[in-house]
Design a protein around this nucleic acid. Structure first.
Lengths: 131, 131
DNA sequence: TAATAAAATAGTAATGATTCCTGATTTTCA
DNA sequence: TGAAAATCAGGAATCATTACTATTTTATTA
């Protein structure tokens, strides 16, 4: 079970760290392939899952049927554009206090929450040809 | 495009209304099949999507890779058990004010939010054999 | 009520994201 | 260096969901 170094894993992590958006496995694959044309899609998936499991990256699910990945593991919220599908970070305070609200009338143990916002992003909002 | 009556659609909606939990398409399928053994899985998916599109039911995505459906379309929040995977309703106030927080430092237009909570449900929390 | 157009169905094939499998290659460390 | 363990490439398999098509239902209208 001991983790061993892998060139591929390093490339995947490095690529993810260069991106402010939150690429999908397939986007990671096509990009990393430009440096290493032999890397396989399975390797990308396996390493993204591994990195997420050990907490070096985080997996983002925003209901579009595809997992996104983020090299920034600090807690923060995301916005999904319903027009272009882009996923971007939001600058806002943490909302952990809502867990208390949720637990008030509940007999289980709430460990955390998942929140994301949706709407039209700044780019899609601008009409065509507006400078 | 006019909607026509369909026995299958009625059965699906009726079944969903009897459930407090939030069944997946496959659960709907196996249950409705007890009344109508000829119904096809495609018909279940098509009608669930149609009913969700016209707002008669709602589609719930809680990151487990499977869509859940809910006959209660009023806005409310869900809890997902990380142990047994069950999805249940939470009794708590609406959190729409967080959309304002999210929009404060953002140049797009935020239309809404998706929030769900996770942890251990009341059933899974109880040790075996405890009465 | 019969004819007819539109919508819906059953059954099956196709899709797309992701995971699994296998034999070959790397990494690690004694 | 040598060998065990981890990782890889490539491809097959899985699983939820959607698409396709010939047939059946529903609704409308003569």
């Amino acid at each position: 079970m001991a983790l061993k170094y892998s060139k591929q894993r390093e490339m995947i992590k490095d690529f993810l760290m260069t991106r402010k958006d939150h690429p999908t496995a397939d986007v990671v694959y096509t990009n990393v392939r430009q440096q290493n044309p032999n890397i396989s899609l399975g390797t990308v998936y396996r390493n993204l899952t591994l990195l997420a499991d050990i907490g070096e990256i985080s997996r983002i699910r925003v209901g579009d049927g595809v997992d996104h990945f983020d090299a920034d593991t600090s807690p923060h919220y995301h916005f999904v554009c319903t027009e272009c599908g882009s996923v971007v970070d939001l600058q806002m305070k943490n909302l952990d206090e809502i867990v208390t609200l949720a637990g008030a009338n509940f007999d289980g143990k709430i460990a955390g929450h998942v929140t994301y916002f949706y709407g039209i992003c700044g780019n899609c909002r601008k009409p065509e040809g507006t400078s």
